[in-house]
């Protein structure tokens, strides 16, 4: 499914946010605001002719590998995979249920998912291994990894960052969902991550900073991404808002990992559709 127009992508983002909200409210769990900060990023990757994939053959050898390193945001990936036909949309109704195939964190045996992810600082390093294997095997597919900014407190992220730039893994594109928020507080209040872009540049990455909710900006950052004009791996720091789309979820630390319930769920649904129209 390829959407060529920005309006179509925005409409799809609205649809996916609704799916996430329905799924999480019904289950009474799920990281809604972590999903909403990276909605445009995933919609761009899956619907704007960026990622190569085959829903009929999830293990297609030539597919690009999308590694969701911030595994708590799996609730954004599952509705997209269902929408694309990797598995039945009925599965979204069985989220976290006894007869379902997935729970809150990403698991490797869900069709279309590459790894199990939930503890942070793992997926990004696995992506470096996939990228190196692709180079060794002379394969042309690309490796994409989506990280959370809070995930970048993990030392293993920087071990992998050094390795990727040293080994010129320019078949690797990483995106940090820079929503500025962890579980309890803003990153700059906990331990400063800034100057964040500079840190990545110092670690040998080519860095682009964008508005992570703008499809024009995301697609602009990925322009010509298959040509591998640069030797370094690419890091896109996507400036985002945690909970984007629902005001009372936005930038609200204590909503991490929660789904709205009762009247708040109704309010969230109304606001999401009102604001997005």
């Amino acid at each position: 499914m390829i959407l060529n127009k920005i309006e179509e992508l925005e409409k799809k983002a609205k649809y996916i946010r609704n799916q996430v909200l329905d799924m999480c409210c019904k289950a009474g769990t799920g990281h809604v605001n972590s999903a909403f900060s990276c909605t445009e990023i995933l919609v761009a990757l899956y619907y704007a002719d960026i990622l190569r994939y085959n829903p009929q053959n999830p293990d297609w050898e030539e597919r690009d590998r999308f590694i969701l390193s911030k595994g708590q945001a799996s609730v954004i990936l599952y509705p997209i995979l269902a929408d694309l036909g990797f598995f039945s949309e009925d599965e979204l109704n069985r989220f976290n249920q006894s007869d379902g195939i997935f729970g809150v964190h990403l698991q490797h045996d869900v069709p279309g998912a590459e790894i199990t992810s939930g503890s942070l600082g793992h997926g990004f390093g696995i992506a470096t291994g996939l990228a190196l294997a692709a180079k060794m095997n002379m394969q042309s597919h690309l490796i994409f990894a989506l990280l959370g900014d809070g995930e970048c407190y993990e030392g293993s992220i920087w071990e992998a960052a050094m390795f990727a730039s040293h080994n010129r893994l320019n078949n690797m594109i990483a995106i940090v969902d820079r929503n500025h928020l962890c579980v309890t507080d803003f990153t700059e209040n906990i331990v400063e991550l800034e100057p964040f872009a500079e840190k990545w540049r110092t670690f040998g990455w080519r860095v682009v900073t964008i508005n992570g909710h703008s499809f024009e900006a995301i697609l602009g950052a990925l322009s010509g991404f298959r040509s591998r004009k640069f030797a370094q791996p690419l890091m896109i720091i996507a400036d985002t808002v945690k909970g984007k789309g629902i005001n009372f979820l936005c930038d609200a630390p204590l909503w991490h990992g929660l789904a709205p319930a009762g009247q708040q769920a109704i309010d969230a649904k109304n606001e999401l559709n009102k604001d997005m129209e």
Binding site: E114, I115, H122, F124, G125, I126, A127, T128, G129, L130, A131, L132, A133, M136, S156, A160, F163
Partner: peptide, 8 residues
């Protein structure tokens, strides 16, 4: 993690 990715 590198070994995991290489094996995958």
């Amino acid at each position: 993690v590198l070994a995991s990715g290489l094996a995958l």
